[in-house]
């Protein structure tokens, strides 16, 4: 049935097992992996998801890497393909290619403090990393999640955030850019949380994911807090198409982001990110 010829180019068929609305325009799809290959993945990697007849888009894994049978992706309805994906009902078929790309450097984090800095939908690719960090909690020092988003109704994974906030071994801070009452949490951009976090700059590894502008500001704020560029990792946003490094779309300078990223160390892209429209 499966001819090897097209393997990297042809999606595997998967089914939607369940859907969950996270925010007005954001859904998490859990996939039935029966027909898909056993989908082990590293936190930070992505799949190419196909809405059949519409197109294909890169979407990060947002589920637990310790549960390979429960592939989860969190999708925001922005374009035609992502909107079609968010409209899929339980049982609907979709295509999956992957996993692709580099993951968060969790082995490097052993014995260190880890701060996860998420902006908007950027919390989705960080969630698998947090699952793994918590599963191996004793191997790491201080853990914190700093999460900024647009407004209170855009906060994703609310129930889990509450549970995480209740843990004594994890600091969770959430801030929104804009708020009206009755929001009683932080208001201000996510970088203000970095200033308040009192990070131990020699021990801390920072994992950052969000819109590119937010990541640039966050990396600067981390630098101001004393972190070396080598201790900061970003998940880059480019338009990955093929996942194989052959379609050329996702370039940033010399990087083919689908192959060399999406997770890259900050010193590798700092200069490129400073150049307009590169």
């Amino acid at each position: 049935m499966d001819t090897p010829l097209l393997d990297p180019l042809r999606p595997h068929i998967a089914r939607v097992r369940s859907t969950r609305r996270e925010a007005p325009d954001v859904w998490t799809l859990e996939l039935d992996a029966d027909q898909a290959p056993p989908c082990g993945f590293a936190p930070g990697q992505f799949n190419m998801l196909t809405a059949f007849g519409v197109g294909e888009v890169p979407i990060s894994f947002s589920g637990d890497p310790a549960e390979p049978g429960r592939v989860r992706h969190t999708v925001r309805a922005v374009g035609a393909v992502s909107s079609a994906l968010t409209r899929l009902d339980c049982g609907a078929v979709l295509g999956v290619r992957g996993p692709f790309g580099t993951g968060w450097p969790l082995p490097e984090a052993v014995g260190r403090d880890v701060v996860l800095i998420a902006g908007g939908l950027g919390i989705a690719p960080l969630r698998p990393a947090l699952y793994q960090l918590l599963a191996e909690r004793a191997r790491y020092g201080r853990l914190s999640l700093l999460y900024g988003t647009r407004g209170p109704r855009d906060i994703l994974f609310r129930r889990e955030l509450e549970a995480w906030r209740a843990r004594a071994d994890l600091t969770v801070e959430v801030t929104v850019d804009h708020a009206t009452h009755p929001w009683h949490g932080h208001v201000g951009v996510v970088t203000t949380l970095i200033e308040r976090a009192r990070l131990d700059s020699d021990r801390t590894l920072a994992l950052v994911c969000g819109p590119e502008v937010m990541m640039r500001f966050a990396a600067e704020a981390l630098g101001a807090a004393g972190l070396a560029a080598e201790a900061i990792f970003l998940s880059l946003e480019r338009n990955m198409h093929c996942g194989l490094g052959t379609c050329g779309h996702c370039q940033l300078g010399g990087l083919l982001v689908c192959r060399d990223g999406p997770v890259v160390r900050y010193d590798r892209v700092r200069d490129a990110l400073r150049i307009r429209e590169l």
Binding site: H178, V189, V213, M214
Partner: peptide, 11 residues
């Protein structure tokens, strides 16, 4: 800086 970033409405 923070106010300007906020102004961008990056999300």
């Amino acid at each position: 800086h923070a106010a300007r970033l906020q102004l961008l409405d990056v999300y």
